[in-house]
Design a protein around this nucleic acid. Structure first.
Length: 260
DNA sequence: ATGGTCGCGTAGCGA
């Protein structure tokens, strides 16, 4: 089972790129972030015609997440639990039935948090704490859980060409790293690390300053695995070629393959 | 030091 994550930076502006990539990579489940539309504006017909069931948690103009799945959804959840007043659409979760039992997948668009410090950074840290609480609550079920998405977290120095330059950024600050580590410490492992990911394997290149041309990227799109998922991963890939296409997103897809 | 680029929605924000 191929499970992918991709910050697509507007589903409407990226339908051609999505179609091309689905035909090439043929994932079973795709978690999308920054679809930038309300549910009503999502191109359900076109995506369903490509062979996918669709779960959408949209928002006007900003944010918005979705899950595409060849398998039917057994259960779904939209919105990260823990704060009823949070209006931003950044979390969707679905359960599908794999060959060995249920597989739970989440599409996460973790807040950017800049400028830091400030209220946006406070929101990011609070959101990370809520995510940790929810992620931890899933572990006692002993299911295969794959928490994927744009985490807006650069885990290590090797995940940016310029760790000094990123030092003050909300994706790289000590408080962010502490929250990231606390999330992992609940019992999840990074697919990238488990599959021997190396330095300089980026998932995002800014549109500005020739970041792509100069390979000034960062690694911020991640797959976090419960023990039952970590035991079953067989392959890991970053579809870097997608960044070379026409009108690309500034992120590229990240894919885990599982014997599930 | 500044500007540089996208998408949304049609000014300016968010990234």
């Amino acid at each position: 089972m191929k499970i992918a994550t991709w910050n697509i930076n507007s589903i409407k502006a990226r339908m051609h790129a999505l179609t091309d990539w689905l035909n090439k990579t043929d994932p079973d489940i795709v978690c999308l972030q920054e679809i930038k539309t309300e549910n009503e504006g999502f191109p359900y017909m076109e995506v369903e015609a490509l062979g996918y069931n669709v779960l959408v948690h949209g928002q006007k103009s900003y944010n918005g997440v979705a899950i595409l799945s060849k398998l039917p959804f057994e259960d779904t959840l939209t919105g990260l639990p823990g704060d009823e007043t949070d209006q931003q659409a950044r979390y969707a979760e679905a359960v599908v039935m794999g060959q060995r039992g249920p597989v739970r997948v989440a599409s996460i668009y973790l807040p950017n948090g800049n400028p830091a410090p400030g209220p946006k950074y406070d929101y990011k840290l609070a959101w990370m704490k809520r995510l940790r609480t929810h992620a931890e609550s899933l572990l006692p079920h002993e299911e295969a859980v794959v928490l994927t998405g744009d985490y807006n977290v650069i885990p290590y120095d090797q995940d940016t060409h310029d760790p000094i330059g990123w030092r003050g950024d909300a994706a790289f600050r000590p408080e962010t790293h502490a929250q990231w580590q606390a999330l992992l410490n609940t019992g999840y492992t990074e697919a990238f690390e488990q599959m021997d990911g190396r330095a300089g394997q980026y998932t995002f290149w800014d549109y500005q300053r020739g970041a792509w041309q100069n390979d000034h990227g960062i690694r911020i799109d991640h797959l976090l695995l419960s023990p039952q998922a970590a035991d079953r991963i067989t392959d890991f890939a970053i579809d870097k070629f997608v960044r070379e296409g026409d009108k690309p997103s500034d992120h590229v897809p990240v894919i885990g393959t599982f014997d599930l």
